[in-house]
């Protein structure tokens, strides 16, 4: 049980960064950013390759920067070249597959055997005992959330929020919405890549397919979190929902893994169902109540 809790907390903290990224792109900017899957692997590939070469910290920084570049490409495609936003993400994502292979030295996976990672280095400091992975990933996750909360209150953050709320109003405030979309998507993909970077160094490997479905899982966590914390009422709560949702999801995941209630192969299907139902629920509720009313009053 302790092991399950530890795993859930550890992965929950790391993957909460993907959800935080989706909060920024999907909730705040109102753009479904499908760069996420490829960008997660990009972060992982860059960080693990750098760690293999003996630079675990530089690997994290480089991963974040490369994620920002990926986000910039997606933003550029949709704001300057008129590619529809969903397609822009898919195009970047497809291109990233090759970039990711390149980052891993043209191989589909890289492993760290004896190389130092941020986790092995942190363990040597002796902080947190056997909980050191959770302490480190939790600190990073909470720092990112505080940073996000701070950013949302700045003038630039307000402009990014307004872009998703009423784009015309942003132009009327003398700010170019193309700029705010670019800032938002770049920042979001920095976070996604950071998540991949930390996950890669934790599991000491990177795999070209590690990102498949990350965007859907991230959304599932966002929705679970928002339901639990009544998250959409304020920015602070919504940010907290990212972490809460991930820990809950990873806890369920670990339980299923342990108890085998559901075959583990079916988990992605389950996740997809959760997301589809959660997003569809207002619509379903509405049509059910309409139908009931029609039957009653007919």
């Amino acid at each position: 049980m302790l092991h399950i809790i530890q795993t859930a907390l550890e992965l929950g903290c790391i993957y909460s960064l993907v959800t935080l990224a989706l909060f920024l792109s999907y909730r705040v900017l109102d753009i479904a950013d499908l760069t996420t899957d490829g960008c997660f692997v990009l972060g992982m590939a860059v960080s693990v390759s750098a760690a293999a070469a003996g630079h675990p910290f530089a690997g994290i920084v480089l991963a974040v920067l490369s994620g920002g570049c990926a986000g910039f490409v997606t933003a550029f495609l949709q704001t300057r070249l008129g590619v529809p936003s969903i397609l822009a993400g898919i195009v970047t994502n497809t291109g990233l597959y090759t970039v990711n292979l390149m980052a891993m030295g043209w191989s589909s996976n890289v492993s760290l055997l004896k190389s130092a990672t941020i986790f092995t280095l942190f363990r040597k400091t002796g902080i947190g005992g056997s909980w050191y992975t959770i302490i480190l990933s939790g600190t990073v996750s909470i720092l990112c959330m505080l940073l996000m909360k701070w950013f949302m209150g700045t003038r630039l953050g307000l402009s990014v929020r307004a872009t998703g709320d009423n784009r015309d109003m942003v132009s009327a405030s003398s700010i170019n919405p193309k700029f705010t979309i670019t800032v938002g998507l770049s920042a979001a993909n920095c976070l996604t890549a950071l998540s991949g970077a930390i996950a890669g160094q934790l599991q000491k490997s990177a795999d070209i397919n590690a990102g498949t479905g990350i965007v859907v899982i991230g959304l599932a966590c966002l929705i679970i979190g928002e339901t639990v914390t009544a998250g959409r009422k304020s920015i602070g709560r919504n940010i907290a929902a990212c972490l809460a949702g991930n820990i809950i999801y990873r806890f369920i995941y670990a339980m299923i893994l342990q108890t085998r209630i559901i075959p583990i192969e079916c988990l992605k299907l389950m996740t997809a169902l959760i997301v589809a139902l959660a997003i569809a629920s207002p619509q379903i509720r509405q049509s059910l109540s309409d139908r009931n009313r029609a039957r009653r009053e007919a």
């Binding site: 402009s159 709320d165 009423n166 009327a172 700010i175």
Partner: peptide
Amino acid sequence: LKGTAPHMTIEENLALAYLRAGTSGIFSR
């Protein structure tokens, strides 16, 4: 509905409009 951001507060909307003055830094609150 065209001139304001509905999910942001009155204060935040005014702050955005006031950006036209060009006097505040992008990271100021």
